[in-house]
Design a binder for these strands. Structure first.
Length: 424
RNA sequence: GUGGACGUAGCUCAGCUGGUAGAGCCCCGGGUUGUGAUCCCGGCCGUCGUGGGUUCGAGUCCCAUCGUCCACCCCA
């Protein structure tokens, strides 16, 4: 156990042993976004608290109890972003990216929520975010979903399934909400404490309850799909048709309600049975009213967020990620002059063989210790320089894998000899 | 915020009903005056999470606190 300074609860170090998974995923995400013509955007990690209150909603769990909020020296209330959409919407407004323009954007980075940590849930976590701004859909809606279906395929992940729903327009949603409240008020004695609390604030969330005692009551509740306005209904139907045409499996979940107030019409969620309780891997939806609500030109938009930690865990379980890159060559040197000669040789080789990974065995120690490090580095070849080699102007080349053969070659030919040996 | 389990060496863990700490891995050195992965020998490493209490005596029992994990809640 270490004394001294502790890390912040729920905030993790990603160590070299696992960074390969992250890099593999991040590379796949960049490639994916580029393949669909999306452009990267980077926005601040801190915004005015007001932005999140107005976009996510005052009475959501995120805003009520999960935000890292503080005052800066000037007295402004600032907040570490709990999600990315609000900041990107703000950036679109701040930078004059609206007025009928269309933007396909993606973003990756840390988010912060003050929740009790558990498997797949951390206080600092990372999301891959995609936002299509200025598109009414439902074609982009389908594009975003098809994009993620491709990602799962590329990564070799099979234990994910797609759930879809439509929340309709704010108007039809409000009408449905009234019906729902009416229904639950009629059975108020059957509601558990959580649900009673939600009845006033966000009654749609009652539908999401995991309480087994509530399931019968919920099953009898009116369904939102039966209360959609005509345009939303058509939009939803077209999205489903597009997905069928593209061969993407999905199920309609009339109880899928997102926890953020800004969603309208299409909402979707990819879940997995491989992560325990925190099973949402990627989710999002349409937020046609958000940009206007934040003071921008009225602009339809849709986006989603994917949880990096959760997908990294899926990749770890699947075991499909290739091993980390190992050095091709490890340079072993002993003696003051040999060490400087080795360092210089390493530089020369990096010029001559820019694609090769040349590890210089700094840190001293006898040959035995250095060869042990060379072996553990995973390098295929070792270059050996000591007093004897120095005197004769040669370098010893040792194969660390397979039959242990060692040859000598003149300093000037090392590059070509290495390349030849590595090609075998 | 609520509930449950758990905190012993850098890592994985052992330590029976209280008698003042142990193994493997890692690291370092030697066996091989300059050669790894195998083998052998040796060495380094602990305020037993922290603070109180009970006791002649606490890693072991009690309380508190911090942390980790899992679940609720919520969500990526």
């Amino acid at each position: 156990m270490s004394g001294g300074i502790q890390p912040i609860r729920g905030m993790n170090d990603v160590l070299p042993a696992e960074i390969g998974l992250w890099q593999h995923l991040e590379a796949a995400l960049r490639e994916l976004a580029a393949a669909y013509g999306y452009e990267e955007i980077r926005v601040p990690v801190v915004e005015h608290t007001e932005l999140f209150k107005r976009s996510i909603g005052e009475f959501t769990d995120i805003v009520e109890k999960e935000m890292y909020t503080f005052s800066d020296q000037g007295g402004d209330s600032l907040t570490l972003r709990p999600e990315a959409t609000a900041g990107i919407a703000r950036a679109a407004i701040s930078n004059g990216m609206l007025r009928g323009q269309k933007h396909k954007l993606w973003c990756i980075g840390p988010m912060f929520r003050h929740e009790r940590p558990q498997k797949g849930r951390y206080r600092q976590f990372h999301q891959f975010d995609v936002e299509a701004i200025g598109f009414e859909g439902p074609d982009v809606d389908a594009e975003l979903i098809v994009m993620m279906a491709r990602l799962w395929r590329v990564l070799g992940l099979t234990r994910v399934r797609l759930k879809l729903n439509s929340l309709g327009t704010p108007e039809s949603r409000a009408a449905y909400r009234d019906k729902l409240v009416q229904y639950f008020r009629g059975h108020e004695q059957a509601l558990d404490a959580d649900s009673r609390r939600r009845l006033g604030g966000n009654p749609l969330r009652i539908l999401d309850s995991k309480n087994p005692d509530m399931q019968a009551l919920i099953a009898g509740a009116p369904l939102i799909v039966d209360h959609l306005d005509a345009a939303s209904s058509e939009h939803f139907g077209a999205l489903q048709a597009a997905l069928r045409a593209a061969g993407v499996d999905f199920s309609i979940d009339p109880r899928l309600v997102r926890g953020l107030d800004y969603y309208s019409r299409t909402v979707f969620e990819w879940t997995t049975d491989a992560l325990g309780s925190q099973d949402a891997v990627c989710s999002g939806g349409r937020y046609d009213g958000l940009i206007a609500h934040l003071g921008g030109e009225p602009t339809p938009a849709i986006g989603f967020a994917m949880g990096i930690e959760r997908v990294v865990e899926l990749l770890r379980q699947a075991g499909t990620v290739p091993a980390a890159h190992m050095p091709d060559v490890y340079i072993v040197a002993q003696g003051t002059r040999a060490v400087s000669a080795g360092l210089a040789l390493a530089e020369r080789l990096r010029d001559e063989l820019p694609r090769r990974r040349i590890a210089f065995g700094a840190g001293g120690g006898n040959f035995k210790a250095q060869f042990r490090r060379a072996d553990r580095s995973g390098a295929r070849l070792a270059l050996v320089i000591g007093d004897s080699e120095l005197e004769r102007g040669v370098v010893a080349v040792k194969n660390l894998r397979g039959e242990a053969n060692q040859i000598e070659c003149p300093m000037s030919e090392v590059g070509t000899r290495l390349e030849a040996a590595l090609k075998e």
